[in-house]
Simulated assay, not measured.
Amino acid sequence: MSLLTTINQDVKTAMKAKDKETLGVLRMLKAALQNEQIKTGNELSEDEELTVLSREMKQRRESLVEFQNANREDLVEQTQRAITLVEKYLPQQFTEEELKAIVTEAIAKVNATSMKDFGKVMGAVMPLTKGKADGNEINRLVKEQLN
Rank of each mutant, 00 (worst) to 15 (best):
S2A: 04
L3P: 01
L3F: 03
L4G: 06
I7M: 00
I7P: 00
T13G: 01
T13Y: 09
A14T: 11
K18R: 09
D19I: 01
K20H: 06
K20F: 07
K20V: 07
K20T: 09
K20W: 04
T22P: 00
T22C: 10
T22M: 09
R27Y: 09
M28S: 15
K30Y: 12
A31G: 09
A32P: 02
A32C: 07
Q34G: 08
E36C: 04
E36A: 07
I38T: 14
K39E: 09
K39F: 11
G41N: 07
N42F: 12
L44V: 09
L44Q: 11
S45G: 11
S45N: 08
E46F: 14
E48G: 06
E49P: 01
E49H: 00
E49R: 02
L50I: 12
T51M: 03
L53F: 11
L53G: 03
L53M: 13
L53A: 08
L53R: 01
R55S: 12
E56V: 15
E56L: 13
M57D: 03
Q59F: 13
R61F: 10
E62F: 09
E62D: 13
S63F: 01
L64S: 08
V65P: 06
V65N: 07
V65C: 06
F67M: 15
N69F: 05
A70M: 14
N71T: 11
R72L: 13
E73N: 08
D74M: 03
L75R: 02
L75I: 00
V76T: 11
V76D: 04
Q80F: 03
R81S: 13
R81P: 03
R81T: 13
I83T: 02
T84L: 10
T84K: 12
L85G: 04
L85Y: 09
L85S: 03
L85W: 05
V86N: 09
V86T: 15
E87L: 07
Y89C: 12
Y89R: 04
L90N: 04
Q92F: 10
E96D: 14
E96N: 10
E97K: 14
E97I: 14
E98V: 07
E98G: 08
L99P: 01
L99G: 00
A101G: 05
A101H: 14
T104M: 04
T104P: 00
T104C: 02
E105A: 02
E105Y: 00
E105H: 01
I107G: 05
K109Q: 08
V110E: 08
V110T: 13
V110H: 06
V110R: 08
N111W: 03
N111C: 04
T113C: 02
D117S: 09
K120Y: 11
V121M: 08
M122L: 15
M122Y: 15
M122S: 13
M122K: 15
A124E: 15
V125S: 01
P127R: 09
T129A: 11
G131W: 02
K132Q: 13
K132T: 12
G135D: 05
N136T: 15
E137W: 08
N139F: 15
V142M: 03
V142W: 00
K143G: 01
K143C: 00
E144H: 11
Q145M: 14
L146Q: 06
